[in-house]
Simulated scan of single mutants.
Amino acid sequence: MAELTLARAARPGRNPFVVQGSVYCDTCLAGFETSKTTYIAGAKVRVECRDRETQDLVYSKEGTTDSTGKYSMTVDEDHKDQICDCMLVSSPRKDFQSPSAGRDRARVILTNNNGHVSATRYANSMGFMAAQPMSGCTELLRLYQEYED
Results as ranks from 00 to 15, higher is better:
M1R: 13
A2R: 11
A2G: 07
A2K: 11
A2E: 12
A2S: 12
L4E: 13
T5Y: 09
L6S: 14
L6D: 11
A7N: 13
A7R: 15
A7S: 14
A9I: 10
A9W: 02
A9Y: 04
A10D: 11
R11L: 14
P12Q: 14
R14V: 15
N15Y: 14
N15Q: 13
P16N: 06
V19L: 03
V19A: 03
V19D: 01
Q20F: 01
V23L: 07
V23D: 03
Y24Q: 01
Y24H: 02
D26L: 07
D26W: 04
T27N: 12
A30S: 12
A30W: 02
G31W: 09
E33R: 15
E33S: 14
T34H: 03
S35L: 14
S35Q: 12
K36T: 11
K36M: 14
K36F: 15
T37C: 05
T37M: 03
Y39C: 06
A41K: 13
A41E: 14
G42E: 03
K44L: 12
E48S: 15
E48F: 08
C49I: 06
R50W: 07
D51A: 14
D51C: 10
E53C: 01
T54S: 15
Q55Y: 04
Q55T: 13
L57H: 05
L57E: 06
V58Q: 07
V58P: 00
Y59P: 13
S60T: 11
S60D: 02
E62G: 05
E62I: 08
G63T: 11
D66T: 06
T68R: 06
K70L: 07
K70Q: 14
Y71R: 04
S72T: 10
S72L: 07
M73V: 12
T74D: 00
V75Q: 00
D76F: 12
D81M: 07
Q82I: 00
I83T: 13
C84F: 01
C86D: 03
M87I: 05
V89E: 05
V89A: 08
V89T: 11
S90T: 10
S90M: 03
R93T: 07
K94N: 09
K94S: 12
K94A: 14
D95V: 07
F96C: 09
F96H: 05
F96N: 03
P99S: 08
P99N: 09
S100G: 02
S100N: 11
A101V: 12
A101S: 10
G102S: 11
G102Q: 07
R103A: 14
D104R: 05
R105V: 08
R105A: 12
A106V: 08
R107E: 10
R107W: 10
V108H: 04
V108D: 04
L110N: 04
L110V: 07
T111E: 00
T111I: 05
N112P: 02
N114K: 02
V117I: 14
V117C: 08
S118T: 15
S118H: 04
A119I: 01
T120F: 00
T120C: 01
T120G: 00
R121T: 08
R121W: 00
Y122R: 15
F128C: 08
F128N: 06
F128G: 08
M129G: 09
A131I: 10
S135L: 00
S135D: 02
C137Q: 01
T138D: 00
L140C: 03
L141I: 09
L143G: 13
Q145I: 04
Q145H: 10
Q145C: 11
E146H: 12
E146P: 01
Y147I: 10
Y147C: 12
E148R: 11
E148V: 05
D149R: 15
